[in-house]
Design a binder for these strands. Sequence first.
RNA 1: CGGGGAGUAGCUUAGCUUGGUAGAGCGCCUGGUUUGGGACCAGGAGGCCGCAGGUUCAAAUCCUGUCUCCCCGACCA
Length: 571
Amino acid sequence: MVMRMSQVVAPTLREDPSEAEVVSHKLMLRGGFIKKLAAGVYTFLPLGYRALRNVIGIIREEMDLSGAQEVCMPTIIPAELWQESGRWPLYGKELFRIKDRHDREFCLGPTHEEVITDLVRDSIRSYKQLPANLYQIQTKFRDEVRPRFGLMRGREFLMKDAYSFHTSEESLEKEYQNMYQTYCRIFDRMGLKYRVVEADSGLIGGGFSQEFMVLAETGEEEIFHCNKCNYSASRESAGVGKYKAQAKAQAEAKVTEIHTPNAKTIEELIAFLKISPDQMIKTLIYETEQGAVAALVRGDHAINEPKLKKVLGVEDLRLADQAVIKKVTGAPVGFAGPVGLKGVKIVADHAVELIPLSVSGANKEDFHLINIVYGRDYKADLTGDLRFAVKNDNCPRCGEGIFDVSRGIEVGHIFKLGTKYSDKMRCVYLDEKNQEQVMIMGCYGIGVSRTVAAAIEQNNDKDGMIWPVPLAPFKAAIVPVNAEEPEQKAVAEKIYHELQAKGLDPLLDDRIDRIGVKLKDIDLFGIPFKVIVGPKGLKEGKVEVKQRRTGAMELVPLDQVSEKLVQLIGG
RNA sequence: CGGGGAGUAGCUUAGCUUGGUAGAGCGCCUGGUUUGGGACCAGGAGGCCGCAGGUUCAAAUCCUGUCUCCCCGACCA
């Protein structure tokens, strides 16, 4: 097949479409890579689909190499399976629910633990068939509350999901490491800069998990990493290490009640009392299955509810409403504090204990207390790490370094699921002793379409995308300065066929357009190399080879062009 | 789901306050002049002004409802 630009369906735009905000979204729309059909639902046009196929190809090759087997499961899933796993009522509105003509309930699969578990429990009976790792590359649906940023957070998107089944934790651990290595190879091959972080496993459940983050200034996620050791974690799960030297409280300063009319928020208080937020105690009243609790964090910190759950050992946690707050503290919202608080468990973040003289609500409308000393004026029933980490916090792993923060885009996530699904869905096998055992599972995802967006997010400039070679929709574009001039035309065609013969995936820009227009488009597309065929070069029997990323240009004799590109593209 | 904003040609948009023949730039088509980084001239095609009601002699414009899209927040295997 000859790829001639004059025939490629790529409706490019000179202006940014008003619907796009982030750079990858703008560029893909401008380059005619994708077209929106509905919020969070996109068509891939030829150029976009070529890039997507490159991503798919690398993932598929590496997954196959890892020993995983590809399958393809339905996108439409009967509700019964989800009821069996218990997720039907839990998953909420994000689950795209539909009914068939007989009023039977289904959902569009947002993830496929249920389907794969159903498959494996019926297909695998013996320990001799384990371990097994099955994967698919398939469209997923999540009715996101707010789809945004183009392919970054769509409602319909392409995902690679793999599920492994084991007879032991050791076997799972081995496969988990295998997947870890496989993921590293996948993202290395794509030429993307990424970092692996420890993460919270969220609704999918299970224990330890790691996320693969493509680094980009514009990433949605904050990544915390130690400047001394190799600890790195997502904002949700980053632990806060031990605090260093603490100032001793001045015991003589007595707790004093201050009238603070209308000052309910931290901002209002620091302005009113002329203090800094790190002197404040933020007191949040929560309801749990064990009753109400008062959680304390420093005024400049944000509470991390999953951490709070862990420290308290509760399942159910929600912020108390006004009535409960009034009952617990005796004051309206905004005046809660730990001093004199009775009848609720008090749980404090480590940082709160260390405030020398702190300020909090007085549990009395329009009053706050100052000069509070921990241990003298109140004591927490429980202390722990309750808050989101911030830049410069101490590393919990090595205790030496502090956190740097960078931004990234989550493109991969690997989990040890354990028996969460196999247990509920009775996915069992017979072991050597003829005993029935529940399979232990792992689960490994890559956001395939999101990876395309992430690659652009990481690699672009004012002129457009800059594809890493392995992902580029075309590796090289041959651009005659004047496509109507016979010599240029002939030379361009010849080079085109040479490159194609060498499997270099070239594009021939045969459009009858001014050179500037053609080059602008090719740059926008992010094609790594351009071969410019013009009269100046031809006089000396040469063409120009120009690199998209660096702008570097080299004159290359005609008979050496294909060789040169083989060398540049790397075969 | 809460707050904000926007729907006018393929794209970017003006017009709306103060109702009276729907405009521009880009792109597209034809002809000509050009031709090494988004050319120029001339001519042309292309609009249910998101949709539905209402007010009015008359609605892109005013009123009501509704749908869609975007942004911030909450949410996010």
